[in-house]
């Protein structure tokens, strides 16, 4: 890949990188900085790109380290920690379930969901659903499912217990599932 092609390829993923960074940092300026650093690092490491994975996967890998660094910096400010308590508390009351533990609103039939994977619009809806998650929930979920950090790394970086992590990821999945169902699978988007 020549330089111009490579730079254009990097630029094409800019929007994706910004979204992913913003979901984890919830700070537009910081997200911008982290993405800038990622692109600069990618340019200077161009030779290191072997083409074994896609450019996007490779960039996601670089972004991961930049985000972990940014979170470490932020972690020194105590503000971030406080809101974790609200999001990790798995109350016995859960509006998704009846008192006897049965589904209050059972999962709907999604038909052949795989069809959605070829539609860009589906991924736009998924991004919107991720944006709607509470900040720490989104951060943890993105670290796990998009940055592919191991559970124990996430616990270490965010100083939370494994149990907190499971609760947060469970909440994130329940909310994302419901949001996709309401905004894609139940709507006309599916057709």
């Amino acid at each position: 890949m020549d330089n111009a092609t490579f730079t254009a390829e990097l630029d094409a993923h800019r929007r994706y990188l910004l979204r992913v960074a913003h979901l984890q940092l919830r700070d537009a300026d910081l997200a911008e900085d982290v993405v800038q650093e990622t692109l600069v690092a990618a340019l200077s490491a161009q030779a290191g790109f072997t083409g074994k994975s896609s450019v996007k996967t490779w960039l996601t890998g670089i972004l991961k380290h930049k985000i972990v660094d940014a979170i470490r910096q932020k972690q020194r400010q105590p503000i971030i920690q406080a809101s974790f308590d609200d999001e990790t508390d798995l109350d016995d009351f859960d509006p998704l379930f009846k008192d006897n533990g049965g589904w209050a609103a059972p999962p709907a039939d999604w038909g052949d969901p795989e069809n959605a994977l070829s539609r860009q619009q589906f991924f736009d809806i998924m991004e919107l659903c991720l944006e709607k998650l509470p900040p720490n929930t989104a951060r943890v979920f993105m670290m796990r499912e998009v940055m592919e950090l191991e559970s124990d790394e996430i616990c270490k970086e965010l100083t939370i217990t494994a149990n907190n992590l499971w609760v947060i990821l469970y909440r994130a999945r329940m909310a994302l599932r419901q949001c996709l169902e309401q905004n894609w699978f139940a709507g006309q988007g599916r057709g």
Partner: peptide
């Protein structure tokens, strides 16, 4: 059936996120 459906949906979401990042 409800929880079986739920399990499949979570697996689908994992696949969707895999596509999203690659």
């Amino acid at each position: 059936d409800k929880c079986t459906r739920f399990e499949r949906q979570l697996q689908f979401m994992r696949e969707a996120l895999r596509r999203y990042r690659s």
